[in-house]
Structure formats: C-alpha cells, structure tokens
Simulated scan of single mutants.
Amino acid sequence: MTVNADLSGHVVVITGAAGDLGWGIAQACLGAGARVALVDLDAEGLAQRSGQDDERLLRLPCDVADSEQVRRVIDAVLARWGRLDVLVNNAAVVTPGEKLGDLSLEHWQQALDINLTGAWLMCKFALGPMRRAGRGLVLNIASQLGSVAAPGRGAYGTSKAGLIALARAIAVDHADEGVRSVSLSPGAVLSSRVLRRYGDAETARHMLASRYPVGRLGEVEDIAQMALFLMSKSASFMTGVDVRVDGGYTAI
C-alpha cells in the first residue's frame, strides 16, 4: 500500500525515531513533504538513521520520561520551524518476559514511565502549540497487546492499553480545539527488535506467522503507510479510535 498524502509544510515530531518503525514513519513523512524532528534517547542511533544532512530533519536526543528534556525538545522544534502539526508517540521499551507476579517494580515502572508517561509528557507540551494553531494530530503507536494479552507481556500490554485510552481522552478533550488523536496498534513487525528476540527472520516467521490469519508478519512499510494515511486529509473525520494493523491477530 502506498498512500498519496501531501504533508508539505507540516512539522512532524516522532519519538523512538532511531528504531526501525520510527525511522520508517519518518521516511514516509519526508516522502510526503513534511519536516521531521527525530527524537530518541539514542543520539548515536539518530545520527546513523538520518544519514546525510537534510534541512528538513532535526535530530533531538531526549529521554521522554524526563519532563524538562521533553519541554526542551518542543521548544527546539518551535524555534526551528515555528509550528507543530503531528506528534507520533512511538518510543517504547519492552520489559523482560516474566509473569506479572515475578516482574520487578523497576521493570514495571520502566514500562509505564517510557511507554505511557513519556507519551503523556510529549502530549502535554505539544498540545499547547497545536491548540493555539487550532489544528494538530496526536498519533500513539500502541500494539495489538493493548487489546489482548500475551504471556509474560503484562507490563508492556498494560502500557499500550494506556496509550489507546490516552488517545481517546485527548480526542474528547481537544476535538473542539481542532486537535485529532488516534492510536495505531501494529501486530508483530519484522524489525530489528523482533530479529534480536528470535535470531533471524526465518525463525521469527516460523514462530509467529501462523498466529496471524494473513499468514505473515507485518513489515515496517505496512505501519508507516497507515501512519501516513492517519496524518492525511483523508483521515480528517477520524479521532478517538484505535486502528489495528495486525494481520487479523485480534480477530481470533
């Protein structure tokens, strides 16, 4: 799927931009004419992902769980481009695969701090310029595990369910100010994170693909193109919803 979207002049802020999914969404936005702020705790990863200098890119190392760092990121974006049209909350951490009764408080808190509170902090500071402009979109990258449970993924799933609820709350609170808010819930995507867990693509497909009615894992492009659609004018009547791009996983 290739989405025909025009984001010329728009400014998109993407957290977790050093990862495969964040960078994939960034590339889709750049291809649609947007200016993109790449936000990630991994400064070296940001530099490697973005490659050559591009005046449409802004690289901003940030711990999204740190309120002051988040404030500085939004200030830097406004200082550079004077506007903020889309916030993509994609930063996430996956906690150890343990039953909830065995999970440490440290790992539980880490999942909530980064995946959920970090997203709220980004929203808190990004909503100001959006509300003043009377336009904007908050796009939370949630997960199929925000809607269904999986063994050993309780903290991660809880944080992603929170992202879905956060998107709905923002939609209800700020629709009258021109701000839309949606969540996008991917299924398993063939990314470096999945490859690290399973060793290689063939093993990942063997272990996971049969769980999906479509018979395959997702590709980064599947998610990036849906994100681009949700940013486009074609999705202007969509807010407060969770869009699942999960190959039918949650339909079973």
Rank of each mutant, 00 (worst) to 15 (best):
A209G: 06
H10F: 02
V12D: 02
L139D: 00
A155Q: 06
S192V: 12
N90G: 04
V138I: 13
V12E: 03
L58S: 05
R49F: 08
R131H: 05
F237V: 09
V88K: 08
N4R: 15
D75G: 08
Y198P: 07
Y212R: 05
M122T: 10
D20I: 07
R244S: 13
I170E: 06
D176M: 05
T95E: 13
A169K: 13
I252G: 15
Y212K: 05
P151V: 05
R132G: 14
V39E: 06
A91V: 00
A79H: 08
V179C: 04
R80T: 15
L127T: 08
A227L: 01
L121F: 11
E106Y: 01
T15P: 00
E221C: 15
D75R: 12
L184W: 09
Q69R: 06
G178T: 00
A65G: 14
L38S: 02
D222T: 01
E177Q: 08
G33P: 01
L230H: 03
G146M: 07
G9T: 11
R131L: 15
T117S: 15
A251I: 04
S8M: 03
L163V: 05
V93F: 03
V77P: 00
E221S: 15
R211S: 03
D75M: 08
S159I: 08
R59I: 03
F229S: 11
L208K: 07
Y156L: 11
G19T: 05
K124D: 13
L166M: 06
M207W: 12
G199Q: 12
C123T: 02
A43V: 06
A133L: 02
Q27K: 12
E177Y: 08
V86S: 11
S185W: 03
S185R: 01
K99Q: 14
I164W: 12
V194W: 10
G33M: 00
G152E: 13
E106I: 05
P61R: 06
M226P: 09
D113N: 10
